[in-house]
Simulated scan of single mutants.
Amino acid sequence: MAADEIKDTKREKILKIIENLSLFDDDLMTLVFDKNILATELLLNIILQRNDLKVIEAVAQREYKNPMAGGRSITIDIYAVDGDSKVYDVEVQCDPSGADVHRARFHSSMIDSKMLREKQKFKELHDSYVIFITKTDVIGGGLPMYHVERVFQETGRAFNDGSHIIYVNGGYIDDEDPVGRLMHDFRCIKSDDMFYKELARQVEYFKETEGGREIMCKAFKDLAEDLAEERAKERAKEKAKELARRLLARGKMTEEEIAEDTGLPLETVRGLAEL
């Protein structure tokens, strides 16, 4: 098969994948919501049951780096700030394991850690919302949404610390309910089938126009290249570990020398030595 034919075949496969994408898929969701104030306002107003929320910033795939050496960082699917400086972290999850309750706690803490400057008072913390939109009903109560708030257990009174966690059931079906219509749109693979024009316009552009499909194809190509690079690094790391194991078994080099020759961290070599 000629090179051009192979290229065309790959493109056709990518276009077929794009055709079946919905807003539950990272690649499309990221492009639709990145810097899209109107779509993000729509999303948050529906989930928070408001009609007056104004978003001033919306960024997809916003990274929050952990200041602790070796600490885990996070990448927020949709990061938003409203006119009252409240911060929103919206996570769109197909896999139920991605909506673990401990992840919600960790995301909330990471957002809080970036809010205050040195010597600012704790009461100056703005409200934060961590919102998980899950493809299935991970909580299992059959409800459209689940709100998590801290309370004093003895009195039932709200703690009112400004931290909010919400789970949205992506499997919820009710075309008479704004949340149901929103989740319907998230599941749609065709813009014509969607209720909300703020979402339909972007889905139509990225999936159904030549310019939008080119952007999607490039995103898939970049993703494939990144994955190939990651796999190559992982293979190289495994080869280095195997070499380190052999050198340790021979017992003729120190752990420090093995670490230097293989390029592995000394801690990794020491861990292999203990096996």
Rank of each mutant, 00 (worst) to 15 (best):
Leu143Phe: 06
Pro144Arg: 13
Met145Asn: 02
Tyr146Arg: 01
Tyr146Asn: 03
His147Gln: 00
Glu149Leu: 01
Glu149Asn: 09
Glu149Tyr: 02
Arg150Leu: 02
Arg150Gln: 02
Val151Asn: 07
Val151Thr: 04
Gln153Tyr: 14
Gln153Trp: 15
Gln153Val: 15
Glu154Ser: 14
Glu154Tyr: 08
Gly156Ile: 00
Arg157Tyr: 09
Arg157Asn: 10
Arg157Asp: 13
Ala158Asn: 00
Ala158Gly: 01
Ala158Gln: 09
Ala158Ile: 03
Phe159Asp: 09
Phe159Arg: 07
Asn160Phe: 09
Asp161Ala: 10
Asp161His: 05
Asp161Thr: 04
Gly162Thr: 05
Ser163Gly: 14
Ser163His: 13
Ser163Asp: 14
His164Ser: 15
His164Ile: 12
His164Tyr: 14
Ile165Ala: 13
Ile165Lys: 11
Ile166Thr: 02
Tyr167Phe: 15
Tyr167Asn: 14
Tyr167Arg: 08
Val168Thr: 15
Val168Phe: 11
Val168Asp: 13
Asn169Ala: 09
Asn169His: 11
Asn169Pro: 09
Gly170Thr: 12
Gly170Arg: 07
Gly170Leu: 11
Gly171His: 06
Gly171Ile: 15
Gly171Asp: 15
Ile173Val: 15
Ile173Gly: 10
Asp174Asn: 14
Asp175Leu: 13
Asp175Glu: 10
Asp175Trp: 11
Asp175Cys: 06
Asp175Tyr: 02
Asp175Met: 11
Glu176Ser: 15
Glu176Tyr: 14
Asp177Arg: 12
Pro178Phe: 08
Pro178Ser: 12
Pro178Arg: 10
Pro178Glu: 11
Val179Lys: 04
Gly180Arg: 00
Gly180Pro: 02
Gly180Leu: 08
Arg181Trp: 00
Arg181Phe: 05
Arg181Ala: 03
Arg181Met: 08
Leu182Gln: 04
Leu182Met: 11
Met183Ile: 07
Met183Leu: 02
Asp185Glu: 13
Asp185Gln: 08
Asp185Ala: 01
Asp185Leu: 08
Phe186Leu: 04
Phe186Ser: 01
Cys188Thr: 02
Cys188Pro: 03
Cys188Ser: 05
Cys188Phe: 03
Ile189Asp: 09
Ile189Glu: 04
